[in-house]
């Protein structure tokens, strides 16, 4: 056979290459949807917030201590909403972070395979319960309980919502902690046992320090989830933006405010309406930075053990 004929044999089939390229491009387009989503989120938030910040200075927005867009005189200080969010986040962290860590320790270091096989699905179910159900539970089960224990408790209060949010984020903390512990090489444990350490000592002094960055990442992610949680706080925490540190009073979080505006008949185009986007932007920035931090920690943790 002549060389040129041979060369023709290996020449790409045009139709096939064209089809392959077209499919590749189509699939790449699918992947690009995610980037478009991010861009759209940023553009919408920035654009509509700009309309808000034309009328209210960012300084006033970020440092004002009174949030009253619907009353005269209007006031646009976001700090009460931030304070309300913080109250719920701290409260839920008090519930979920220690309990999640301990659950993770139990799952990874103590539970037998069969126990794990039961406990993990239970946690998954807990994580899969819709937030509106948790909100209902907080309002009609946790709050009456709190009222019975602390007589001064208001009908809507931060504590009840915080407990429910804590329960909601607990499975996530437990699952990431469990993964982090499992990633710790067994040789480390064996080494400690060989020195005569007991299991509790191995867990607390060897495994936990080795998995610390994974634990911290789970905490940061959980906080981010708590900041963005909406339905529980909307149902149970109230709609009363105020600067308070008393968890038994009604407050309002950033997310609950966004819901309030979209529920009401606020006319589009007014300043009150644009507050929705300004608060949304702040919420996005907070959760986004928390997520970026958590992912950075997780990546470093994985590199350490892979």
């Amino acid at each position: 056979m002549r060389s040129s004929q041979q060369q023709a044999l290996f020449r790409p089939r045009r139709s096939q290459q064209w089809r392959e390229g077209a499919i590749r491009a189509l699939l790449a387009l699918c992947a690009a949807v995610s980037v478009v989503t991010t861009v759209a989120i940023v553009v919408v938030l920035l654009w509509e917030s700009a309309l808000f910040f034309r009328e209210v200075s960012p300084w006033e927005f970020l440092t004002g201590t009174r949030w009253a867009p619907k009353f005269q005189p209007q006031s646009f200080g976001v700090l009460p909403l931030v304070c309300g969010t913080l109250l719920v986040v701290v409260g839920s962290a008090l519930v979920a972070l220690p309990a999640g860590l301990i659950t993770g320790i139990y799952l990874s270091e103590y539970a037998r395979p069969r126990t794990r096989a039961v406990l993990k699905p239970i946690l998954e179910i807990l994580a899969g319960i819709p937030t509106v159900v948790y909100g209902y539970f907080a309002l009609y089960f946790i709050t009456p309980g709190l009222m019975a224990v602390f007589p001064g408790t208001e009908r809507f209060n931060a504590a009840s919502a915080a407990i429910a949010v804590g329960v909601m984020i607990l499975p996530m903390v437990a699952s990431i902690c469990d993964d982090a512990f499992q990633a710790v090489p067994d040789s480390l444990r064996q080494g400690a046992y060989a020195l005569g350490a007991r299991r509790r000592q191995v867990v607390l002094r060897v495994v936990l320090p080795a998995a610390l960055s994974g634990v911290i990442a789970s905490y940061v992610l959980a906080l981010s989830r708590a900041v963005g949680e909406t339905m529980i706080v909307t149902l149970a925490a109230g709609a009363n933006p105020q600067l308070t540190l008393n968890p038994l009073e009604a407050i309002q979080t950033m997310t609950a405010y966004i819901v309030q505006v979209s529920l009401g008949d606020t006319p589009a185009g007014t300043v009150e309406y644009h507050t929705l986007y300004a608060v949304g932007l702040l919420l996005f920035l907070i959760t986004f930075s928390l997520n970026v931090v958590a992912q950075r920690i997780l990546r470093r943790f994985r590199e350490e053990y892979e």
Partner: peptide, 14 residues
């Protein structure tokens, strides 16, 4: 057979 398999116009699939 004298054809460079890594030449530009050679299709690895073929």
């Amino acid at each position: 057979r004298g054809v460079d398999l890594y030449a530009k116009d050679v299709d690895p699939v073929q």
